[in-house]
Design a protein around this nucleic acid. Sequence first.
DNA 1: GATGAATGAGGGTTCATTCAT
DNA 2: TATGAATGAACCCTCATTCAT
Lengths: 219, 219, 219, 219
Amino acid sequence: MPVADTKAKPRWERRKDARPQELLDAALDLFVERGYAATRLDDVAARAGVSKGTLYLYFENKEELFKAVVRANLVSALAEAEDYVAHYTGSSRELLRGFILRWWERIGETQLSGISKLMMAESGNFPDVARFYHEEVIQRSHALIISLLERGISRGEFRPIDKVNANLVIVAPVLMLMMWKHSFHSCRLEPISAPAYLECFLDLLLNGLQVTPASPTTH
Amino acid sequence: MPVADTKAKPRWERRKDARPQELLDAALDLFVERGYAATRLDDVAARAGVSKGTLYLYFENKEELFKAVVRANLVSALAEAEDYVAHYTGSSRELLRGFILRWWERIGETQLSGISKLMMAESGNFPDVARFYHEEVIQRSHALIISLLERGISRGEFRPIDKVNANLVIVAPVLMLMMWKHSFHSCRLEPISAPAYLECFLDLLLNGLQVTPASPTTH
Amino acid sequence: MPVADTKAKPRWERRKDARPQELLDAALDLFVERGYAATRLDDVAARAGVSKGTLYLYFENKEELFKAVVRANLVSALAEAEDYVAHYTGSSRELLRGFILRWWERIGETQLSGISKLMMAESGNFPDVARFYHEEVIQRSHALIISLLERGISRGEFRPIDKVNANLVIVAPVLMLMMWKHSFHSCRLEPISAPAYLECFLDLLLNGLQVTPASPTTH
Amino acid sequence: MPVADTKAKPRWERRKDARPQELLDAALDLFVERGYAATRLDDVAARAGVSKGTLYLYFENKEELFKAVVRANLVSALAEAEDYVAHYTGSSRELLRGFILRWWERIGETQLSGISKLMMAESGNFPDVARFYHEEVIQRSHALIISLLERGISRGEFRPIDKVNANLVIVAPVLMLMMWKHSFHSCRLEPISAPAYLECFLDLLLNGLQVTPASPTTH
DNA sequence: GATGAATGAGGGTTCATTCAT
DNA sequence: TATGAATGAACCCTCATTCAT
């Protein structure tokens, strides 16, 4: 066992710097698949190819692991979205449409939608996690959409409406699709075609937002 | 009553016919509060004022208890909604509006919204329960809303649209509000005013559905 | 609800005197089918068509119920066997053969063999029951067989052998057949044909007992 | 060792490779003592000096623990017996005699007889375990004894008899002795002297098997 | 006599977390 | 740094026995 051995770094040996990311990936997979409470750290470690103890070297506990997953994935995707909106130069209709479709592409269609679903599903049982997610993800994304609506209204492209609630109403069908994908859809029940669904949604939404000669909101 | 002994409180009090309902009520409370997996039958029994074993006299196991809760609450509410739609005589706009507001009143504002939330949240981990809920609740409610849209379209009150997806899009904001109420809202985060939210939603929706001279769906 | 009603004894109403026997029958069925520990008093009561509480009116507890089952069945069968031996007038070979075949007929082939099996199986966990069974059944039946061997030896029909142990050796194949019937045989594993088995056993046994010119027990 | 603290007993002691065997030993003790159903895994763990959870690190569940006990003990003993028979060169009478005495020595006199007893006692309630035991133990041991009888018959040392049933008849007294030891005998009732019993049995058996001028099987 | 609702002490199993090596 | 053996508090479910009616 000569000295050289200890220096040789075979390329199949995982560099220790890679460990956290491997754990985050494994954790993302499992949190998405089973939810927060139902994910066993045993399984996370196994999927990352390390022992359970190792997991605790990198993450204080289950909660911190989850927060790290959120930070590493959703928060960075959010920054990208903020950038997209900030630099958009076309019409607000196009911006809203593009925003929603990109949102679905970057989050909805990927595993990350599972995190949104998970938070809606379990935040009630884990208030600390909920608080964290609210501050890091929800507030920022809501601010972003509200600013987008303001842009449309101030440029005369959208009717003047209750921006805060419209934000939620606009967000709802996308969130719902995400949730569906990870609930009944995952049981092979009640499949939804995302493209057709989104098209239908945008059709209704853009019609609803459009400035009409006489908005018939009376009833 | 000569001797103090006769006053001795019995180890248990016979409630007979009232028990099942008391247990269903307790179970509803806790399933709503904590979700399916996180609800302990111990706690359900305790809240109903009985011992754990007693619960098993009335319900075979956790799953059957949950199904009974759904049947006793959601399924019966659904029947009422079907009745409401079947006998409505006014305009389809009013019907849709009334349907949604009543839905919120009878389900959304009550505890029952917690069951809808729970199913979205946990159906992935409990496929048997998911299947049951899909058959007893989801299919029926979707059929109901689709029939409502058909009525509006056939009477020329709504634009001809993709009914199946529109159903989902329409349902989404209400479901989202229900979920919100039992997730972030319950942590006192991001409160939503249901009436303002619903008004905003209906404003957008009814505008979106209205027949326009030139539907600007092009983009 | 006139007085006459209370006096009328519809013939479908079980007379209270029949209750104990019905319970004993149900208990026999279930003890035989599942064993002592695994038999639930719930099930015994249900099979007898009464409530669980009623069972406790007639039998102090599970143990007393079991003892009553033994008394009502095995002990009376034993008395009959004693009678058979006492009044037999033919050869001892024929007596032994007849005794064993009758034993199988009256006990082995019926449910009662299940009780013998049960006692061998569970007496270790229920010493009180074991003691009772030993006194009421085992000692008496051993005494009977030993007397039968003595008869054969004293009449010069059997070799002079160790009667106490021969008793056990003779009893073993029959007991084994009973146990088998209620263990592996009941799982449809390893079926045994009782008549062929007994014939083979008697062939070996009577040959083994027979007085030979030179008993080759040396080895 | 300067400070008392270093002497503090760790919450648990790492035993690693020794654990499985310790657990198997503890499990054997308790299964033999109480049977399958009545053995609590709590107690097995406690006897092995570990917590209940630890047991599940090594064995998937109670059934697998039991199977492991059988494999580690009976199956290996059986292999040894097969070897003994295969290499025996003397007379068949001696072989049969030796086989039975060794069987008693290696299994009957040790705890392992308790496993045989347990299976006879509880296989009816645990069909999966029964099937496993039948395949791994019973079929093999029956095949072994039948081959032994065939050897004797083909060499003209035993009368030509029904081998399959004779196998069972031969096995019965030994099994019975095992059962007795773990049932009434363990309650200090009806003690049997194993050597005298076996001697008596072999005397009868070898006489019964022997080739006689005129086998008087008529009756 | 008869009922059956109620009990409560477990039994098997799971899993986040700890810590000696 | 990495391991993985060990823990122990829960959780779901069972059942002999009791006792008010």
